[in-house]
Each structure stands twice: as C-alpha cells, then as structure tokens.
Design a protein around this nucleic acid. Structure first.
Lengths: 110, 110
DNA sequence: GGCTTACGAAAGTGTCAACTTACAGTCTTT
DNA sequence: AAAGACTGTAAGTTGACACTTTCGTAAGCC
C-alpha cells in the first residue's frame, strides 16, 4: 500500500489534486475545473489516489465529494521517516542480499 | 530537481539501492551483485539517482564508488515535510487555479 | 603492446501509465 | 416516466521506462 502511495504522489498532477482537497471537500468536477485536462483524466487520478488510500469519497446525490485521507498520508509519512532513519532496514537488506549472492556467485571484493 | 528525486524513490529497486549505499561506498558491480537483474540495469538506476542528486560518484581507477548524497536526501525530505504542512502552498495553488479558470470558464458552484 | 577487469552507452523490446473520445450509470426534477 | 446534471468506465493511442543484449572505453597487469 505504501508503494502505491509513493507512486501516487510521484505524479505532480496528483500532488496538486491532493493539495486542493487537503482540508476541503470538493467534487470531481470542481477539482477538474482547476486543471486543463479532461474530467475523465482527473477521475482516473482520483481513483489512483483512492486505491493508495490517500483520499476518501463521500457520495451526496449525484456528486462525489473527495477529501484527503489523513490516515493514508500519515502512513506514508511514517514510512518515509523510517526510510530516512534507515539503519534497521539495512540489516534485513543485508540478510536478503547474502541469500541471493550465495545462490548466484557474484564477483565481490571486500 | 525534487520532482526527479520523488520519481526516483518511487521505484522500489532504487530505494533498495539507496539503502545499500546509505552509509557505505560500493562499486556498481558490488551493488549489482545484490540483485538479480543485469549490471547495466543497475547502472541505469544509478544514473537516475545521480541525476536526481541522490547519489554521488567517485572514480577510483577502473571502479566507480557510489554513495548516497545526504544533501539531496535532505532536500527531498524538506520538500515532503513542507508538503505535509501544506498551507503555504495552498495559496499559491489557488492563485494559479484562478488564473487557469479565468481563461477557460469552468462550471463551478460555490 | 596485448589482455583482462570494471564499467557506461547504444539500440531494441515489452509493459505500464497518462491522456483522449465515446458511452453508460445514478440521482434529482418535472 | 422522461429529461437533465454529475459522474465513472471502456477502448484506443502515445510516450515513458525498466529491462536485455551488444558494443565501446578507460585503467591495471603480463
């Protein structure tokens, strides 16, 4: 899921969308009117964001109100903070690498 | 540049590479030996990381030693922290959106 | 000089993703 | 029930990208 979220925010357009609905609820039409692409394109972006858990939808009549999902954002943020910290992961990585190398035979010099 | 960095770490393989050279200098061959893809593939990943300012290279004889670049990582990190914070950007975004809407005529309801 | 090592660059391939146009669904209104 | 408004979905196109194999190049060694 974090992977999806990272890929989602790697797209500039989606970051802009996120900012628009950061603390306000907007319909997809209202969101689309802020950009120069067609509405379906925005719909697809919203789907990607929703699949990544970064936005929530609320249906109200024929409209759908989108809003940033704090939990998803927090999860991504925590992952990244763990990434900057790093050290713990290094051990896990090293173990996996050792495994791979053993079954492959790489040219390595210490 | 931050955009490049974000796209760079959106790729899982590149995140793994980054972790490997987080605090250690490794040759591209050594890095490649940790994965199951070919060496040129890793070379290309390293190039992407270098272009994004996330990695530095040091040539020593025939080898090239790669290492994570703290400044680049810090820059990306600060951008993201500003992103979580958000509010400042919202104003800028609103202004640009206003501009776009004026020259386009969107259906918008207050 | 000739050979090997370590690496990037070039060219080609398959896949994914961002976009478009066209269509279908759902809710409100009359 | 029919019409209109607000949407998501389907299908197709184009460009990017992660990868492969092949080749070129710079440094060390006999």
């Amino acid at each position: 899921m974090v992977d999806l979220a990272l890929r989602a925010i790697a797209e500039p357009r989606r970051r802009e969308i996120l900012r628009l609905i950061w603390d306000a609820e907007l319909t997809s039409g209202a969101i689309a009117s802020h950009f120069e692409v067609t509405r379906p394109a925005i719909s697809q972006h919203l789907r990607v964001l929703a699949d990544a858990g970064l936005v929530s939808v609320r249906r109200q009549g024929t409209r759908r109100l989108y809003r940033a999902r704090p939990e998803g954002l927090a999860e991504l943020r925590e992952f990244l903070e763990g990434f900057w910290e790093g050290r713990l992961w290094l051990l896990k990585q090293a173990a996996e690498a050792e495994e791979r190398r053993a079954s492959q035979g790489g040219t390595e010099r210490t």
